[in-house]
Design a protein around this nucleic acid. Structure first.
Lengths: 337, 337
DNA sequence: GTGAAAGCGCTAACAG
DNA sequence: CTGTTAGCGCTTTCAC
């Protein structure tokens, strides 16, 4: 039963192969009666067209790739990717695209697989989740004219299309909120500064303080890596400089900071206020519950798919640059709202 | 450059299409000199065979599917899927398979997509991550003779191949450890009892207590849902029965239990000991650090891929049933080791 | 409105 | 050892 072909459906319906093809592809110029008959046969038999055969002629596969570059450590502590994938699969399902997932674990894997990803004509387009500066994959995509959209802003002003959260404004909002509450020595634990996300959130922090104070104390800026333990270590380095508030560029790092604070007997928010970024599901459950910036990750995933399909349909020009707005979620770690 | 075909490579190398095909597929009977020449041309041009054309004739696509059924809530709080996917992609990369991801969010999506997953001949086989009892997808796979392996034991004794963690033994180990430490009123917060994982971990709990006491106090068994808040609620229901120890069937639930305990001023492990299951990255960071059962999720993913490929190569019989052993990780939440 | 025929790029007999 | 030939199952002109 499962090896049905167009030809056989045609025979069963008493028409030609082409007619069945027209019905399947919703082409006009088929008598309604005939269309009904064909559709009945298809439904009865559970026929599904062979994708390989179809894409051999259409030059399209209906498959898009999601490429996740190597060793994103936070992959396994952070619900960022699960959420993103949720949005992406949801949109793919809605738009009748299939998703293929490419994740790399070593440099060798990357080098071995990039060419096949790009050239085997398996993919109509790809979504690249990378905010790393100088990601080597992007030039390859461009060179091979593979349609793509990035999740996260690319570093240099390429013609790349992307979807990102408004990291600068989000961070600015967080820090301004702290300033408004009266905190004077507001520190930040940044993300990795070889990522645009890390850079942009630091930018928002700096902008907010510059607007208020006219200056930024460099001693209060410490680089983290988006992980809990990174946040923990960063907070320890911050302690000697006696901040009265900390903006952590991710919730995971904020949790690490909370832990470091707890260990030295400092109370949050009484001694030090803490604000995070992401609004992880656990942010509401920490002790104290974490004030943070919520970003619409799932919707970014949906947006990425829709943008890619738009590019597939209408061409890559002009580049689509989409920034999703964020939202301040006030809980108790910042000391009242 | 990117629209190269076999034919053109053949021309460039001064041989016929078939010879190039032989070289690409590592067939014998090609003079070494010719082989070299062809390979040089391929390398120079960056030629990659068109997958659609190839699979049209070979009847194989080199793509395997990972199917994640609807609404696994824990998907977004738990690193289970990220870890599993890490293992699966790693194995796919090593074995030259491409991974396709199917995730469903509503019943409608499921019903719409199952047929195409199963019949469009896009997939050589699938990995199904579901331990839900009566998953409706499994019968469809069988009916359509789609090769598959499950991650998680299927409920009824079908001929399905699967890879699972040793949940019964893992739970047994955890509970025995508590008993050995002298706890008398050992409670459990189970997983959802419509999953084999939930069932098996409860089984291990019961077995361990039966061996020790000869009986199990039903009042000390409360059903959870694998989430933090579920564990929190379950712990609250347990409190009136005054357990002196709790085995939570997942770390997330254990965290919820810790929170509930903290809220009523009970200290862990002094008043109540807690043991989890999973060994999440955050288990070492909770307050107190969580004693738990570690399961090799990433390795299960690798194993699932390898098993599937084995089935693809050697046929589905006999069913492969693989159980991965677990490991007790002692930290302080159980009161010394 | 419908059918016949060509061909997408590849592999796999079958000759030579 | 190498080339020729015949499809894989589908879409798409082009006739009718």
């Amino acid at each position: 039963m499962s090896r049905l072909t167009l030809e056989q459906i045609a025979k069963l319906a008493g028409v030609s192969r082409s007619t069945v093809s027209r019905v399947i592809n919703d082409h006009p110029h088929v008598r309604d009666q005939v269309r009904q008959r064909v559709m009945r046969v298809i439904a009865e038999t559970g026929y599904q067209p062979n994708l390989a055969a179809r894409s051999l002629v259409t030059q399209r596969t209906g498959i898009i790739g999601l490429v996740i570059p190597r060793a994103v450590q936070s992959l396994f502590t952070d619900p960022f990717f699960p959420r993103l994938i949720q949005g992406i699969t949801q949109a793919c399902n809605a738009k009748d695209y299939t998703l293929s997932l490419f994740m790399f674990h070593t440099k060798e894997e990357e080098q071995k697989l990039y060419p096949t990803v790009v050239r085997a004509r398996l993919l109509d387009g790809v979504i690249v989740s990378s905010s790393e500066i100088d990601d080597p994959f992007i030039p390859q995509l461009i060179e091979n004219q593979m349609p793509f959209v990035m999740v996260g802003r690319p570093y240099d002003a390429t013609q790349a299309s992307f979807v990102q959260s408004d990291n600068v404004v989000g961070a600015h909002t967080a820090v301004s909120h702290l300033a408004r509450l009266g905190y004077k020595r507001i520190a930040t634990i940044t993300g990795p500064l070889n990522t645009t996300v890390g850079l942009d959130r630091r930018q928002g922090y700096q902008d907010a303080l510059n607007e208020r104070n006219g200056f930024v104390d460099e001693a209060l800026i410490v680089e983290g890596d988006f992980t809990e333990s990174g946040g923990h270590a960063a907070m320890q380095r911050l302690l000697p400089h006696q901040p009265d508030a900390v903006f952590a560029a991710s919730d995971a790092m904020a949790f690490g900071a909370l832990r470091a604070l707890r260990e030295v007997g400092l109370s949050v928010p009484h001694d030090v206020a803490v604000v995070g970024f992401d609004d992880l599901p656990t942010a509401a459950l920490s002790d104290p519950p974490l004030t943070t910036i919520r970003q619409p990750i799932r919707r970014s995933g949906i947006q990425a798919v829709e943008t890619l399909i738009d590019i597939l349909t209408n061409g890559p020009e002009p580049p689509r640059r989409i920034t999703m707005s964020t939202e301040l979620v006030i809980r108790s770690s910042c000391g009242s709202g």
